[in-house]
């Protein structure tokens, strides 16, 4: 074997070993990082299952012993958790219906109806996305309070039925890529635009609409600011406000707080595992990568 060949061979071997080491290091880092990211979540569930007596033990009790499932029962007695869950569900499902009703309609008008409107409307929609909500927040509050609708769910639900710039934009981008010929054919066959929208366009937009439904649901489920402004009586509290009030009222009872937080988080995790693709697509669509 020539000298050059052995040098080359040893070079490749060295590189392979180095590659393997760095690959191993990467895997170790990956496991280490996921451990760190999971730790707070584990701590939440772990505290929720501890007995009150062991919460403040030093060094910490890593595995709850005894396991107190009763915390999850007690939290329903101490807080009006069922009512909070019901209110939160109303405030996250109704906007989904509103957005799915209004936004595809507007996007359809912007992409598939040949009229002059889109030329003027679309730039305005883009421009409104730049306005921070803090600017419109106070006048909206004065308007709703003059209408006597503060402390009702109306201010938090009704606007979604009139379209939201961001979601209109996302659906428009998707609809633009649908072939217009299908709609024209349907039109020639005498279908009205409403029929075309509901029987042809909706099914074609299923993926983007699922994504948007998930995004809107999560936004409603998480919302703190809206309920904080508009919901004043405790019978209308959502989980966000209820949790905050519970913590504010008494000395922190960490086991119950963590149990409530776990209950608050669980539905989103279930939804995530049910429609992972809608989630991942959603994030990538919103970033303009798709």
């Amino acid at each position: 074997m020539s000298k050059a060949a052995t040098v080359k061979k040893s070079y490749y071997r060295r590189r392979r070993i180095r590659g393997r080491i760095s690959h191993g290091f990467g895997i170790v880092m990956l496991i280490f990082c996921s451990f760190i990211f999971l730790l707070p979540l584990y701590w939440m569930v772990c505290t929720a299952l501890k007995s009150e007596a062991y919460v403040f033990s030093v060094p910490p009790q890593w595995i709850p012993n005894p396991v107190v499932w009763n915390n999850f029962v007690r939290v329903f007695q101490r807080m009006d958790l069922l009512k909070y869950i019901k209110n939160t569900l109303i405030l996250s499902i109704c906007p989904v219906i509103g957005v799915l009703f209004s936004c595809p309609m507007v996007a359809y008008s912007l992409t598939k109806i040949p009229w002059k409107g889109p030329k003027y409307i679309f730039p305005v929609i883009l421009a409104t996305m730049m306005i921070p909500w803090q600017v419109t927040q106070i006048p909206m509050y004065t308007i709703w309070s003059r209408l006597g609708l503060v402390d009702t769910f109306v201010p938090l639900i009704l606007p979604s039925f009139f379209g939201s710039a961001y979601y209109i934009y996302l659906i428009r981008q998707f609809m633009k890529s649908l072939p217009s010929s299908i709609m024209e054919a349907a039109r020639i066959d005498g279908a009205s635009d409403i029929k075309i929208l509901y029987y042809i366009v909706y099914p074609m937009c299923k993926s983007i609409l699922t994504t948007i439904a998930v995004l809107v649901f999560i936004a409603g489920w998480n919302d703190l600011n809206g309920p904080l402004l508009y919901l004043q009586s405790s019978s209308k509290y959502t989980l966000s406000i209820g949790l905050q009030m519970f913590r504010q009222a008494a000395n922190p009872e960490w086991t119950l707080l963590m149990a409530a937080s776990t209950i608050f988080t669980l539905p989103l995790i279930v939804i995530f595992f049910l429609c992972q693709n809608a989630f991942l697509n959603g994030i990538q669509t919103t970033s303009g990568l798709k």
């Binding site: 703190l224 966000s240 949790l243 608050f264």
Partner: peptide, 10 residues
């Protein structure tokens, strides 16, 4: 996925 208020409590 942890809601803002829940993660603040945590």
């Amino acid at each position: 996925l942890v809601p803002v208020v829940a993660s603040a409590m945590l």
